[in-house]
Design a protein around this nucleic acid. Structure first.
Lengths: 148, 148
DNA sequence: CTGAATATTTGACATCCTGAACCTTTCAGG
DNA sequence: CCTGAAAGGTTCAGGATGTCAAATATTCAG
């Protein structure tokens, strides 16, 4: 059985972690947006391009992954297609489906953005390798708990 | 001196952590947006309202904190004002400045959103109190390194 | 073959965001 | 006391993101 003091402490601890997360989220978000803009991509466009890293995807799959309406993806893919980062091809299996695939230019832009994120990652530089491992394991457990 | 294998491992570790962060950022972002929408606020409106928690702020200060143009804040505050969550008052010290203050309704909505975030925080529930403490300390060091 | 369901697009509309132009107020120098 | 530069906000034009409802094309069950 926990004392009231312990419950309060635990609550405060959770609040602190949430607060810190919010700070990290803000920093990551800003850096991602800047890195995208440096390649004349918007954040949304960069996210879609990143999803196509492992192969073509149907519009609907993209919308589901990004938790938004499919009609929204239509516009984003339109603009990516205009810029030559992406192509639409019909799915031979099901002609209702359009498969979106990254072009060579699209893959390159996305890969560059990705690696620029790795190396510009100041916050992580503060931690030792051992600490990074600990952080990785904790985050891993959090994410598995959240998505299961 | 590090071997090539160690460098590669360390690089992979960093990549892993960045990947996990990106996942967390996505989850946090989605949950924040949903929590805001549940109170008929947009994400941007909720962010501005959250800034006013400790007192009125000039438009320009809000823009700086959110890293966006002041003209953008004008529109967001307009809509918050229409909904009765916020008021604009002239600064007696400098009549160029408009101080934005949350109304009672605004404070309530923001506080509710905030606490709903704490308790809906599934990912954290996975971790023991000891692990949360470790996580807090690691995040703390990362953030201090990033902002200093 | 018919009708329900699915994948995508289109159009209308609100919001977010930037950049340039504008107004008011402040403030430094002559 | 002027004058002009600088600063805080707003307005306007325009692009991007996002939702929702309606339309189109295709698939699939019966």
């Amino acid at each position: 059985m926990e004392s009231i003091q312990e419950q309060t402490d635990e609550e405060q601890l959770t609040r602190d972690v949430v607060e810190l997360m919010a700070g990290l989220v803000a920093i990551f978000h800003r850096e991602y947006e800047e890195a995208a803009q440096a390649r004349s991509l918007t954040g949304a466009q960069a996210k879609v391009l990143a999803l196509l890293r492992f192969g073509p995807l149907p519009m609907r799959r993209i919308a589901q992954t990004l938790s938004c309406e499919p009609s929204n993806i239509t516009g984003i893919v339109d603009r990516l297609e205009t810029r030559g980062f992406v192509t639409r091809q019909a799915d031979p299996q099901d002609r209702r489906v359009k498969l979106v695939a990254a072009t060579e230019a699209g893959r390159t832009a996305s890969a560059e953005l990705r690696s620029s994120l790795h190396f510009a990652r100041e916050p992580l530089a503060t931690l030792s390798q051992e600490e990074r491992r600990t952080l990785r394991d904790l985050l891993n457990r959090m994410l598995l708990g959240a998505e299961g």
